[in-house]
């Protein structure tokens, strides 16, 4: 866990509402409304995806939704920018391989 609980300027981190998510099928309890990338870092997960051609690991880079390095497959939708997408109860987050795959029979509607 790498959460910053006590902070000299921001004070103590208030008790947060929790939600359950899964990351590659494994359950995690994280803070409601926090960005997916933050939830992953809080659990020491740094590799978010592997590139299409060379299968190289990638993680968070710009943190403001510009660079798309942190994209993952979320609830069956590939290429979701995890640094600007908040977690939701029951969210299924998967390490993305290459360009990712849409869930069978689902176009994200």
């Amino acid at each position: 866990m790498t959460r910053i609980i006590e902070h000299p300027i921001l004070g103590k981190l208030e008790e947060q509402k929790k939600v359950q998510i899964t990351i590659d099928g494994k359950p995690y309890t994280v803070h409601e409304g926090e960005m997916i990338a933050a939830a992953l870092l809080a659990n020491d997960i740094k590799t978010f995806r592997y590139t299409r051609h060379q299968h190289k690991p990638r993680g968070i880079y710009c943190g403001i939704g510009r660079c798309t390095d942190c994209i993952m497959t979320v609830d069956g939708i590939p290429n979701v920018r995890t640094c600007v997408t908040p977690v939701k109860e029951g969210m299924a987050i998967e390490t993305q391989q290459g360009s990712g795959k849409w869930k069978e029979g689902d176009r994200g509607e």
Binding site: T2, L10, A37, A38, A42, I60, Y61, C83
Partner: peptide, 24 residues
Amino acid sequence: TLPGVVGAGAAQTMINISRVLPGK
């Protein structure tokens, strides 16, 4: 491109808004 190489602003977002450390 390795995970762990981040923009300084991204690190700042992580520590001050998300309250998580990108590293030690």
